[in-house]
Structures are given as structure tokens and as C-alpha cells.
């Protein structure tokens, strides 16, 4: 099974780098969002407890989250394409465990998302933030959890969809709002009470904290922070839960299809 997983994950990477427009789009899009929205909202951004933080800086963790979200979406949308082109059937008739399909796809998509996020992390020094080695490692851990959650969720949705247009619709009304209501674009404290509750219940808000907090706090401090630990547990449960659901769904296909 291990070789099957590596093979499937490698396929995702080769396909990604071989499609130039995907590479350019996935790098350019978050930078454009970041610079344009960061500049546009910069003058009007004021949030309690965030004095001296520019909107460009505030928005940065949200952009990192967006990178892994979009990577997860666009990589898992290929599940639908694979099925429509007959490729998935070719994999399903092979004597490899169905788990290899999920793990291969998820690992491949995660690596693509993380590579993009690492590229964007090169701008951290220009924001005037100094997270230190420990902070960077904790940031990477947060990105891994977020990437796992989004990719597994994307896989789960794509597995049940018949068309890519249907997947795009789900993306617009479900996945993007998850990101928007995570605190990526505006702080939770600024939202009305009802929205604040929704944001608190959104597991992606907790994943965002795993990305935002390491930028400002050393690793030792984070490990003692109840806010960080709570975010870590919720985000990890969400990511692992999505992965288990994806595995269950694919395994059920094996039994009933």
C-alpha cells in the first residue's frame, strides 16, 4: 500500500508542476489578494488589541490559510476529473487498498499547498515579524494541520460530486465562507455577537490561530497557552475527522460499488 500512496502523491506533484498555468495561478493569486486587499483595507483597519498592526500584516496568516485551502480544493477537484475521464476506475480495479487513494491524493495536495505557503513565508522578514526557529516550526505544524483538514474535506466533497461545476458551487457557499469566517479577513472581536459565535464554532478559526499565534509568540509560550492548546485540539480533531470520513466514504465505495 505504501508504494501506492507514494505513487499517487507523486502523480499529484508531477501533474501540478507540468501545468504551468496552475503553478502561476496558485502563486500569483494569494499575492494579488494579499497586496490588493491589504492596501485597500489598510487605511480603515482598526481592531482592539491590534494597535500598530497593519492590515497587510493582519491579513498575512489568512493568506497562508487561503493558500492551503485553494491548494486543497484544486487538487481534490481532480478526483471528479479522474472519475469522468475513467482514470479513477482504473485505480479502483487495482489490488491496492482504497486508503492508498485517499492518502495519496491528500499527501500530494498537502505538499503542493505547503510548498506554496513556504514560498509566501519568505516574506515574513519584510513584515517586521521575527517568529524565531521554534515559531516557524509551530507555524509549519499549523499549516500542516490546516492543509490536512482542507484537503481531506475537499476530497470528501469531490468524492460525492459528479461535476466540477457542482464542486465550484460547494466551494463558493461552503468552503470560502469557512475561510472568510475564520478571522482571516477581520478579527472575531469586531464581529457582531451572532457572527462571533459562528466564527468560534468554525474549526477553521482554530486552524488560523495555529498559524497566527506562532508569528508572535515563542514555541515555549505557545505550549503553555490554553488558547493555543484549545485551538490545536479543535483544529486537529477537525482535520483528522475529515480524513477519517474520507477514508470511510471511499472504503464504503469499495464495499457497495
Amino acid at each position: 500500500m505504501f508504494r501506492g500512496i507514494i505513487s499517487m502523491a507523486k502523480r499529484e506533484l508531477v501533474r501540478f508542476f507540468r501545468q504551468g498555468h496552475r503553478v502561476v495561478g496558485s502563486i500569483a493569486q494569494p499575492i494579488i489578494f494579499w497586496l490588493f486587499l491589504g492596501s485597500g483595507f489598510g487605511a480603515s483597519f482598526q481592531a482592539p488589541g491590534l494597535a500598530g498592526v497593519t492590515y497587510t500584516e493582519y491579513f498575512f496568516p489568512g493568506i497562508l490559510l487561503m493558500v492551503v485551502l485553494f491548494s486543497g480544493i484544486f487538487s481534490t477537484i481532480t478526483v471528479i476529473e479522474d472519475r469522468n475521464q475513467g482514470l479513477l476506475q482504473g485505480i479502483l480495479v487495482a489490488p491496492v487498498h482504497r486508503m492508498a487513494i485517499v492518502f495519496g491524493k491528500v499527501i500530494g495536495a498537502m505538499v503542493i499547498g505547503l510548498l506554496q505557503a513556504f514560498l509566501l513565508m519568505l516574506t515574513i522578514p519584510f513584515l517586521g515579524i521575527e517568529p524565531g526557529i521554534g515559531g516557524v516550526l509551530m507555524l509549519v505544524l499549523g499549516l500542516v494541520i490546516a492543509a490536512l483538514g482542507f484537503t481531506a474535506l475537499g476530497f470528501l466533497i469531490a468524492w460525492n460530486m459528479e461535476s466540477t461545476s457542482g464542486f465550484h458551487a460547494i466551494m463558493s457557499v461552503f468552503l470560502l465562507p469557512l475561510w472568510m469566517l475564520s478571522g482571516a479577513m477581520f478579527p472575531m472581536a469586531q464581529a457582531p455577537a451572532w457572527l462571533e459565535w459562528i466564527m468560534f464554532l468554525n474549526p477553521v478559526s482554530h486552524a488560523l490561530l495555529l498559524i497566527r499565534m506562532p508569528l508572535y509568540h515563542p514555541a515555549s509560550e505557545l505550549l503553555g497557552s490554553s488558547q493555543y492548546l484549545q485551538a490545536f485540539i479543535v483544529a486537529l480533531l477537525w482535520a483528522v475527522g475529515c480524513l477519517l470520513l474520507a477514508l470511510y466514504r471511499v472504503n464504503r465505495t469499495q464495499q457497495s460499488a
Partner: peptide
């Protein structure tokens, strides 16, 4: 078993 489908199960990007 070896299986040949109606539409080739091949990845055209590879």
C-alpha cells in the same frame, strides 16, 4: 485481472 475500459484509464498529463 487486467482491465481495459471504454475510455483509456490513462493520465494525459503524464
Amino acid at each position: 485481472m487486467g482491465v481495459v475500459f471504454q475510455n483509456p484509464a490513462l493520465d494525459k498529463h503524464l
